[in-house]
Write a protein that binds this DNA or RNA. Structure first.
Lengths: 227, 227
DNA sequence: GTTGACATTGACGTCGATGTCAACTTAGCT
DNA sequence: AGCTAAGTTGACATCGACGTCAATGTCAAC
């Protein structure tokens, strides 16, 4: 309840009255893409708050004014950037055709899948740390980005909950565990640990971290892990 | 590695060359306290970025200029606020003399203590949600606050690691579990879940959340939980 | 009650990022 | 080539938050 209502940094760059339409010409589309790439570069280098529209224009090699042909504000580019990138990140986390699990038991298979998912998540986070940090930064004051973040989290949680429910139907996980809440907690665990490692610069060794996360996850669900 | 180096919001309010000394007179101390209280009020209402020094002065009922007698910048008040408040938060989490656990076994006792600690943490977070959100916001761009946040986290993790090591000595928890990594993961789980609930406004019911967190925590460590 | 150190006041100058716009360029079309 | 719509340019005006400071006020000590 007592959460800062937190509008935008200065005030009222919530978007221009006329959000620039997507470009119709080929040149326009290229320009927009260049600006987006430049924005990502500058944001990752300077952080969202310090970054200036001028820097983005400069990085894209265009005049200051051209920026406003495509985006209404710094916040607007960022939102576009997030929207464009989110899909890529999710794609990179999609289930790859992995080598089969060593152990054929339902529980062993489940643990193997959890491990694979955790490894993919950690790798994705490591390769996009700056972006994740930016995402978090803007989340703290932009409601729209906050909504995107929540949606992403909910998708993750949904997948995990589904997998837990499956294991409950198989009788491997206790039926009286709240799958929704448990999924939230486990996702928070992995998210939070990796965030601390990469964004807050904690002292971790990747392999050991993933192994511990998988082990805790499995045991939390009552799956046999290790001997 | 690719983390936004993220200086301050505009630029260079990293602190004035001459950080105002603490007041010597009684009046000065009262004034400083009033400004701090006003700062907290305004920050919680508007968020750190939107808040203006003028607003803080106004809320404290003093002239704009008086602010600078006590603090060098908006960031400076915030740091002072965090420093002052952190102790209170930690105090509120200290072990209270609780009623004895229902079950005398070492594991049952451990689970009970975990549950108590989780309840205290959640209650503290709920009562200081706005502050925690602020803390997170500023962490994303101020290195000094980031350091404070890390320190707080490390203290938490240290306590948990210690308790895990104790359980390992008692033979209740597997000795080959990395206590440090596990402590980080478990702290991240509770932190992250509560953050999602209160700051990102997730849909949770407190009792069920705490119960699930404790249960997962206990099971993750291999402690018997529930029947 | 006079003195002097300390604190308060609020009007003012400064500064830098933003967003605009009129002039100019590009490119597609006939 | 000539026309038009779309895009580009960069100098400029705007705006708001910040931090300063000279004048004024407060208070304790002597």
């Amino acid at each position: 309840m007592p959460r800062p209502s937190a509008a935008e940094p200065p005030a009222g760059d919530a978007g221009p009255s006329v959000p620039p339409a997507l470009p119709t010409t080929e040149r326009g589309r290229r320009m927009r893409a260049r600006l987006l790439a430049a924005a990502r570069e500058v944001f990752e280098r300077d952080g969202f708050l310090t970054a200036r529209v001028t820097d983005i224009s400069a990085a894209a090699g265009v005049a200051h004014g051209s920026f406003y042909t495509y985006f209404g504000s710094k916040t607007a580019v960022f939102r576009a950037l997030v929207a464009e990138t989110m899909d890529d990140l999710y794609a990179s986390m999609a289930t790859h055709g992995e080598a089969g699990p060593p152990d054929g038991s339902p529980a062993g298979l489940a643990v193997h899948r959890i491990d694979q998912a955790n490894r993919r998540f950690v790798a994705m986070y490591r390769q996009n740390t700056a972006l994740m940090a930016l995402f978090e930064q803007v989340t703290t004051f932009d409601p729209e980005v906050r909504a995107l973040r929540r949606a992403a989290r909910e998708r993750n949680v949904g997948r995990v909950r589904h997998s837990i429910e499956q294991l409950q139907r198989d009788g491997v996980v206790a039926a009286d565990l709240d799958a929704e809440y448990a999924a939230h907690a486990l996702v928070a665990m992995v998210n939070g640990a990796v965030h601390y490692w990469l964004v807050l610069d904690g002292d971790f060794e990747e392999e050991r971290l993933v192994a511990t996360l998988t082990r805790l996850w499995a045991q939390a669900l009552g799956l046999p892990s290790r001997g």
